[in-house]
Write a protein that binds this DNA or RNA. Structure first.
Length: 670
RNA sequence: GGCGAGAUAGCUCAGCUGGCUAGAGCACACGGUUCAUACCCGUGGUGUCGAGGGUUCAAGUCCCCCUCUCGCUACCA
């Protein structure tokens, strides 16, 4: 293939807070297939993936595990890299945000932003009005003064560095409008525009002082750099960017990246903050950001304590690496989320890999051995009109597949590209049916014409399969290799795939055909799945058994630490037990319920955002914890005179706080 | 509440700028076949194309309205 220049693609880097599940690994498989494909097309590909290793969550996880954060991330990063290797990911660089070179560059970039005025020192909580005891963001201030009392405000102690996003917003809007291909799929572009860019960007807080596990700001070492800035910049530090202008040759060759592949959940960071950071550095923006859909497990509800988390290593052990790759690539179409369960993978493996592909290779090799001792030879006998038409149709399908595949890959429709490739194998199966080799085989010795025809039929099959396998290589490299080896030939380069008949005449296929994909018994699949579920549950139970230890099945919720308060601060809050005597949904609101709450002898109206978790009916009669002396506010046009207190987990599930014993409405909570 | 996406066969989905009897894959049923991993090939759907209205010679395909689902966002005190 001719050299088509460089092609730089990345995945998002994986957060090292724990072992990733198949839904996380899906992205690198997708990226890998694109990387391998582009390489075969003649691009000089550089494919980077890696791990994101800083942040408070990791600091806490490490503490729980009784190890240093570095020890913790070393272990998890190793695990993640191991999964990549297991999945046959052909990354060129595996970057870690704890790499010394990355850390140094992040510090330099941070300093440079500060020096050029993009970063200013402000306050994380906001401006503090001492008499009102309130924090305000700069935007809320009226003429730089407290919007409540109009008095002077001053920065709070909780200082932080902020990035002036507003400075670059217009340029970014213009860029996005002029480059319709920048954000893919396009529906995401509108989301970003309408929700963030057009209303105006808030300045982004770029440092934290509440924990230590991060890259220190070198000129103010109480601060560590915000993890997103740390993480996003990996795309340039990994290839040798230098903030002082001494970037590597590699960087000059590869940047701007051709493709950032990221999950749809973090497309905002990649299409807004990242481009703005690059503008501030004076570097060009990446050519395309693709926000791919997710692979959902059992409809998205998974937990280790239920035993339904699906991990790549379990799948690979049972199905084999290429069956897993095939499934995740084929099942996630383009814009919609895909689904993954053990049963679905098994079904797809049986239908497409065992039946269509594996059986095709097996029957072709078997017939070659049976009829010609494994020798594959095109006899070029005279064909009937009918046979000629059949052969032509086969060849057209096979030689045309690359073009079809190409068109799909151009728009990153990997699933559709795979479908095109499997069209070859389906056509081959049909070809066998049309030519009926077993009929020819019976008369091949008595009728040389039939024998010749049979040889040609098998030659055409072997040739077609080899072309199909060559095209399949980026997606299922191991399988393609096995097929080529069974056929006794080498996989082809892409620019050969339009030509039919390159298989060496008289070459020999293997005499010991190996089953590529065994048909799976659904009972076996269910059994294995159940075993793994049991193991997960057992592991969770074991961890939960330890006193303070939190297993991954009972996730901890880590919050950003707030500043310490005094007892006096606390004493200002008035908590009481309230009894909900009436409750109704707030019209024109998706999340709000309006409750009448009896507190002692008074009744307060309180609006709460808990509609998704409680129906108005079940609210009535509950005794709940109420923050009584909160300043009244109007929500969705309804007055609210307090706050019902709830616990909230990682998924945003809410649980009302209720007294553990019967208590009268109005009882003080202290 | 705002913005956006979607609602098509049992399941997962294709159907571009409106045009002949609305498609694919899976599953299922039947038929054929036996080289092969009980495999492959063929055949099979009366689907109100979410409801209603409109434009048009002609509408899943355009317009209006409604219902529901999903995503982002705001409020979630």
């Amino acid at each position: 293939m001719q050299n088509k220049g460089s092609y730089y693609l990345t995945t998002a880097i994986a957060y090292t807070s724990g072992k990733p599940h198949i839904g996380n690994n899906y992205e690198v498989v997708l990226a890998d297939s694109i990387a391998r494909y582009k390489r075969k097309e003649g691009y000089e590909v550089f494919f980077q993936t890696g791990t994101d290793e800083h942040g408070q969550k990791i600091e806490i996880k490490a503490q729980e595990a009784g190890v240093t954060p570095k020890e913790y991330v070393d272990r998890v990063a190793g695990e993640i890299r191991g999964l990549c290797d297991l999945l046959n990911i052909s990354y060129d660089k595996f970057i870690r945000t704890t790499d010394a070179s990355h850390e140094r560059q992040v510090q330099k970039m941070f300093k440079r932003f500060y020096d050029q005025g993009d970063i200013y020192k402000g306050s994380y909580e906001g401006m503090y009005c001492t008499p009102c005891e309130s924090f305000w963001t700069e935007l809320q201030l009226v003429d730089g003064k407290c919007p409540d009392c109009g008095r002077e405000v001053k920065p709070a102690k909780e200082e932080a560095y902020f990035f002036r996003m507003s400075k670059y917003t217009d340029r970014l809007i213009q860029y996005i409008n002029e480059h319709p291909e920048f954000i893919q799929p396009v529906s995401r572009k509108n989301e970003m525009m309408n929700n963030f860019l057009l209303p105006g960007l808030q300045d982004l807080c770029l440092s934290r002082t509440s924990f230590r596990w991060g890259i220190p700001v070198d000129f103010d070492d109480r601060h560590v750099v915000y993890v997103w800035f740390d993480a996003l910049t990996n795309y340039i530090t990994g290839i040798g960017y230098d903030a002082d202008g001494d970037s590597s040759e590699q960087y000059k060759k590869l940047w701007p990246a051709d493709l950032h592949l990221v999950g749809k959940d973090i497309i905002r960071f990649h299409t807004i903050y990242w481009p703005i950071f690059l503008m501030a550095l004076g570097e060009p923006l990446p050519k395309q950001i693709f926000g791919h859909p997710w692979l959902m497990m059992n409809g998205g509800k998974m937990s280790k304590s239920k035993g339904n988390v699906i991990y790549a290593d379990d799948l690979v052990e049972f199905f084999g690496v290429d069956a897993v790759r095939y499934y995740v690539l084929h099942e996630t179409p383009y814009e919609n989320d895909g689904n993954v369960t053990w049963e679905l993978i098994a079904e797809k493996t049986n239908a497409d890999l065992a039946n269509t592909l594996g059986n095709l290779v097996n029957r072709t090799v078997s017939m070659s051995n049976k009829y010609f001792g494994g020798i594959v030879e095109n006899k070029d006998v005279r064909l009937s009109e009918n046979d000629r038409a059949i052969d032509e149709d086969l060849k057209n399908t096979v030689t045309g597949a690359y073009g079809q595949c190409q068109a799909q890959m151009e728009s990153l429709r990997v699933a559709d590209a795979l479908t095109e490739i499997f069209g070859i194998f389906k056509r081959c199966n049909k070809y066998i049916d049309e030519t009926e080799p077993w009929v020819l085989g019976k008369e091949k010795d008595s009728d040389p014409a039939k024998g010749g025809r049979l040889a040609t039929v098998l030659y055409n099959l072997v040739e077609s399969i080899l072309i199909g396998a060559s095209l399949l290589e980026p997606f299922m490299p191991e399988t393609s290799g096995k097929i080529a080896s069974q056929l006794g030939a080498e996989l082809r380069e892409f620019d050969m795939l339009g030509r039919f008949g390159l298989y060496p005449n008289g070459n020999r296929v293997t005499d010991k055909p190996e089953i590529l994909f065994a048909r799976l018994d659904m009972k076996e699949v269910e059994k294995r799945e159940a075993e793994i579920a049991e193991a997960q549950k057992a592991e969770t139970a074991e961890k939960a058994g330890g006193q303070e230890e939190n297993g991954e099945g009972q996730p901890v919720v880590d919050l950003e630490a707030k500043p310490e308060i005094t007892y006096e601060d606390f004493a200002k809050l008035q908590f009481q037990v309230g009894e909900i005597i009436a409750c109704e949904a707030v019209p024109k609101s998706k999340k709000l319920l309006c409750s009448q709450v009896k507190i002692g002898s008074q009744v307060k109206q309180i609006v709460s955002g808990i509609k998704a978790h409680y129906s108005p009916e079940e609210m009535v009669g509950k005794k709940v914890m109420v923050l009584v002396n909160l300043k009244p506010a109007v929500l969705a046009g309804v007055k609210s005179e307090g706050m019902l207190l709830c616990a909230e987990d990682q998924e945003g599930n809410l649980a009302l706080m209720t007294p553990e014993k019967a208590m009268p409405a109005g009882a003080e909570i202290c």
